Amino acid sequence: MRRRKVPMRKDIVTGEMAPKKELIRIVRDKEGNVSIDKTGKKSGRGAYISMDVEIAKQAKAKKTFNKVFETNVDDQFYDDLIEYTDHEQARKKLFENE
């Protein structure tokens, strides 16, 4: 049986490479709206961030997505990102034990 290649992506906050499935994709569409891409298939410019609450808080403090997407991202997006990251991190721990 052949081993499949694991797609790797770079976390824009830490600069570390990680498997795509362990990261959260953030996307900016043509209209300039920035959102969390839960499916990983939305069209637009994408960037990845680790599924770690502390890294999401760092992104908020540094306004990382403002720089990456060259647009003004409101604080509500960062709060939603932190909440979503916390949820996904807890979910991953829950299903890891099964």
Rank of each mutant, 00 (worst) to 15 (best):
M1N: 04
M1C: 05
M1E: 05
R3T: 11
V6M: 04
P7N: 04
P7D: 05
M8E: 14
M8T: 12
M8D: 08
M8N: 08
M8I: 15
R9S: 03
K10L: 10
D11F: 02
D11V: 01
I12C: 09
I12H: 06
I12P: 06
V13M: 04
T14Q: 02
G15E: 03
E16P: 05
E16F: 12
E16C: 11
A18D: 08
P19T: 02
P19L: 03
P19N: 01
K20N: 10
K20C: 06
K21L: 07
L23I: 04
L23V: 02
I26G: 02
V27H: 01
V27M: 00
R28M: 06
R28W: 01
K30R: 05
E31R: 04
E31A: 06
E31W: 01
N33F: 07
V34A: 00
V34D: 00
D37F: 06
D37E: 08
D37M: 09
T39E: 14
T39L: 13
G40Y: 08
K41A: 11
K42T: 12
K42Y: 11
K42R: 15
K42V: 13
S43C: 10
G44M: 08
G44L: 07
G46E: 07
Y48A: 12
I49P: 06
I49H: 08
M51G: 08
M51Y: 07
M51V: 10
D52G: 09
D52V: 09
V53I: 08
V53D: 03
V53N: 03
V53Y: 02
V53E: 10
I55M: 08
A56L: 13
A56I: 11
K57S: 11
Q58S: 15
A59H: 04
K60A: 15
K60I: 13
K60W: 12
K62A: 14
K63S: 13
K63D: 09
K63N: 12
T64W: 11
F65C: 05
K67D: 09
K67Y: 06
V68Y: 10
F69H: 01
F69Q: 02
E70N: 10
E70I: 06
T71I: 09
N72R: 12
D74M: 03
D74R: 05
D74F: 02
D75R: 05
D75M: 04
Q76F: 04
Q76I: 07
Q76S: 12
Q76Y: 07
F77W: 02
F77N: 02
F77R: 02
Y78Q: 03
D79Q: 07
I82S: 00
I82K: 00
Y84H: 14
T85N: 03
D86R: 14
H87C: 03
E88K: 09
E88M: 10
E88D: 05
Q89H: 13
Q89G: 02
Q89I: 05
A90G: 08
A90H: 11
K92G: 03
K92F: 05
K93V: 05
L94R: 08
E96I: 13
E96P: 09
E98Y: 15
E98Q: 15
E98W: 15
